[in-house]
Computed example of a mutant assay.
Amino acid sequence: MAKPRRTNDWGFPRWRGYESARDAVTIKLCDRHGCEEAGECPAPKAPNSPDRWHFCQKHAAEYNSKWDYFEGLDKAEREERAQAERRDNTGYAEAQHYGWSGSGDGSRTVDEMRALEVLGLEADADFAAIKKAWREKAKTVHPDVAPGDAEAAEEFRKLQLSYEILKSAEERRVWNG
Score class of each variant (00 low, 15 high):
residue 163 Y to S: 03
residue 26 T to R: 08
residue 59 H to Q: 09
residue 149 D to C: 06
residue 35 C to P: 04
residue 161 L to I: 12
residue 55 F to Q: 06
residue 95 A to I: 06
residue 110 V to P: 12
residue 33 H to I: 15
residue 97 H to D: 12
residue 66 K to E: 12
residue 116 L to D: 06
residue 149 D to V: 00
residue 7 T to E: 07
residue 70 F to P: 03
residue 7 T to Q: 10
residue 36 E to M: 07
residue 66 K to F: 08
residue 94 E to K: 09
residue 122 E to W: 11
residue 120 G to Q: 04
residue 118 V to R: 14
residue 5 R to Q: 09
residue 13 P to K: 04
residue 102 G to E: 06
residue 9 D to N: 15
residue 118 V to D: 12
residue 17 G to R: 12
residue 24 A to Q: 08
residue 105 D to S: 03
residue 144 D to L: 11
residue 92 Y to G: 11
residue 45 K to N: 05
residue 37 E to D: 15
residue 176 N to G: 04
residue 23 D to H: 03
residue 144 D to S: 10
residue 12 F to K: 15
residue 134 W to M: 09
residue 110 V to E: 14
residue 106 G to W: 01
residue 73 L to N: 02
residue 22 R to W: 10
residue 126 D to F: 00
residue 149 D to Q: 07
residue 138 A to H: 08
residue 49 S to G: 01
residue 167 K to Q: 00
residue 148 G to V: 05
residue 31 D to P: 01
residue 16 R to V: 13
residue 177 G to T: 01
residue 43 A to M: 04
residue 85 E to Y: 11
residue 162 S to L: 00
residue 134 W to P: 02
residue 102 G to L: 07
residue 28 K to Y: 05
residue 65 S to F: 03
residue 85 E to F: 12
residue 162 S to I: 05
residue 54 H to N: 09
residue 17 G to S: 14
residue 65 S to G: 01
residue 124 D to A: 13
residue 110 V to Y: 13
residue 58 K to Q: 10
residue 23 D to Y: 07
residue 174 V to M: 08
residue 176 N to C: 04
residue 145 V to G: 02
residue 96 Q to R: 13
residue 142 H to F: 04
residue 51 D to H: 14
residue 169 A to C: 03
residue 8 N to Q: 14
residue 2 A to L: 13
residue 64 N to K: 11
residue 16 R to F: 08
residue 91 G to D: 13
residue 168 S to P: 07
residue 102 G to M: 00
residue 83 Q to R: 15
residue 118 V to W: 02
residue 62 E to Y: 04
residue 140 T to N: 01
residue 58 K to G: 13
residue 50 P to N: 13
residue 73 L to H: 02
residue 144 D to T: 06
residue 35 C to G: 03
residue 83 Q to M: 11
residue 30 C to I: 02
residue 27 I to Y: 14
residue 121 L to H: 09
residue 147 P to G: 06
residue 122 E to K: 11
residue 10 W to P: 02
residue 140 T to V: 13
residue 9 D to I: 10
residue 55 F to T: 06
residue 126 D to K: 11
residue 44 P to V: 07
residue 96 Q to V: 10
residue 24 A to W: 08
residue 67 W to S: 12
residue 34 G to H: 01
residue 54 H to G: 02
residue 98 Y to L: 15
residue 108 R to K: 04
residue 58 K to N: 12
residue 82 A to H: 06
residue 123 A to C: 05
residue 56 C to W: 09
residue 174 V to I: 07
residue 18 Y to Q: 09
residue 82 A to T: 08
residue 128 A to H: 11
residue 17 G to Q: 08
residue 33 H to P: 15
residue 177 G to R: 01
residue 87 R to A: 14
residue 110 V to N: 14
residue 169 A to L: 05
residue 144 D to H: 09
residue 121 L to Y: 02
residue 104 G to M: 06
residue 174 V to T: 05
residue 80 E to G: 05
residue 135 R to T: 15
residue 31 D to Q: 09
residue 3 K to S: 14
residue 168 S to Y: 12
residue 33 H to M: 15
residue 82 A to M: 07
residue 20 S to V: 05
residue 160 Q to P: 04
residue 27 I to N: 12
residue 101 S to M: 10
residue 43 A to L: 02
residue 45 K to S: 07
residue 135 R to I: 11
residue 163 Y to H: 11
residue 167 K to S: 01
residue 173 R to Q: 03
residue 58 K to W: 10
